[in-house]
Design a protein around this nucleic acid. Structure first.
Lengths: 247, 247
DNA sequence: CGACCTGTTGAACTCCGTCAAGGCGTGTGG
DNA sequence: CCACACGCCTTGACGGAGTTCAACAGGTCG
């Protein structure tokens, strides 16, 4: 059985102490800055669940919406499909981030949320959260902020991405991923470990697997990235890789 | 000076009595089902503004975020641009719908909201709305629902649309538009009047004007639509036009 | 070992973008 | 009233990026 990353399953979930300037995903812990009593009333709502193994669903499309989920450790993809079966991947989420908030205000989830690796989550019953928001205005503000950020995040990735070529679109994605979960290893290399398949990335970017593969080969030839099986290394020294995205 | 559509600028803004099954945009009036006192406390917050002429901004990118806006009459496009000036159009909004909610939780607007025709709006100061949510749980629920719907709307249009060819992408857009503001004229024709240019539609769909123009010509040749200058007529009798989108 | 999944590469094709020209409607000024 | 300019839309020809189809390599797991 997998080891829990943290025994505390309060809403102070995972404190990634990395600054995140460019990505708009909720990074701050829900409940930060609340007093002790308030924190405790939130903690009492939470159900810890896990471990989910790779491929196991956290929730499924058409299940009644009851809870949002905070990822404690691991990673999750949010997916659905067109009626002909064409798969759609709406996003990938990691420790400290929330899934299920797309369903707020609806009776059912519209997507599947599937673990990409061994994953622990905290379940937050949304009706309880909503009630608590009445008592804790600061919490209400955070939830609203979270939803706003999610809308903006989609705009800055999907909408922007549409106007970019395959390789730039991947760089936009890589940049986002690096901000959210990139690491610097012992050699000082800037790397991003990929819990999802390249096929999944391709779908998420609106590309075919072959097209992404070609884009990756091209970027590697150009010395911009090092393309390994489950890891991308960012070679460009001055991070000018990404400058092309903003020009 | 343009005639006001309604002298009541409460939050019961515009009651389009059309059912809207497929589109996920907020259609119901904020504040529906509240009691008289509650309605009045909302009404007291509202500032009516207008008329805005075509091309006039409701709010601009980089302005501090203070209010969300309910469209009373007319129509609005929400746009921004890439750093090289490439225009992006995030959406079009009509009477009874809200703009500015993408900025919730941020300090500034990230988009321009521009009137497409003579337009009246109601300004809702968001800090006041937020405070009122504490007192009126039902209002809080509606705001949350609204934000959730906006996220789902983006997923069902932009994200889905990426996987469709130019003509199907337009049909998806037309379908949405027809649900939201389509009319049946005296001849029984199902028509959608377009307050925006075809160029704007193209950009919104992630296409070039030329590509959209070709798609429209093709759809007209196939007898699916009638393409007029500022109006699209849907010819297909059994609405099977759109079935291809769900197959 | 063989089945299977994931990723890569090649070749032909397709759709959309690009560039260029022209038509149409509107508004302005002579 | 007409002439002209301008913005919007359309059409044609061409090229290129990405898709499609196919074959194959490498890893994992039974």
């Amino acid at each position: 059985m997998a080891q829990r990353k943290s025994s505390n399953c309060g809403l102070h979930l995972v404190n990634t102490d990395r600054d995140c300037n460019t990505c708009d995903l909720p990074k701050k812990c829900i409940g930060d800055g609340l007093d002790k009593t308030q924190s405790e009333s939130i903690s009492s709502l939470i159900k810890s669940r896990g471990p989910f193994q790779a491929g196991e669903p956290i929730f499924r499309m058409e299940e009644p919406f009851r809870s949002i989920f905070a990822i404690q450790s691991g990673s999750v993809k949010v997916a659905s499909s067109l009626d002909d079966g064409t798969p759609l991947i709406h996003g990938f989420y990691f420790a400290g981030e929330l899934v299920g908030i797309e369903a707020i205000g609806d009776t059912h989830y519209q997507n599947d949320a599937v673990a990409l690796e061994t994953t622990w989550i905290c379940e937050l019953p949304f009706d309880k959260i909503e009630s608590l928001c009445i008592e804790i205005p600061k919490l209400q503000h955070e939830i609203l902020e979270l939803l706003g950020k999610r809308i903006r995040y989609t705009n800055s990735t999907i909408v922007r991405g549409r106007y970019l070529s395959a390789d730039k679109r991947f760089l936009l994605f890589l940049n986002d991923l690096y901000q959210r979960k990139g690491t610097i290893n012992a050699n000082g290399d800037r790397v991003v470990t990929l819990p999802m398949t390249k096929g999944d990335i391709a779908i998420h970017l609106g590309l075919r697997p072959e097209s992404l593969s070609r884009a990756l080969s091209k970027l590697q030839e150009e010395g911009i990235i090092q393309n390994r099986s489950r890891e991308i290394q960012i070679l460009d020294e001055n991070q000018e890789v990404f400058s092309c995205l903003w020009v």
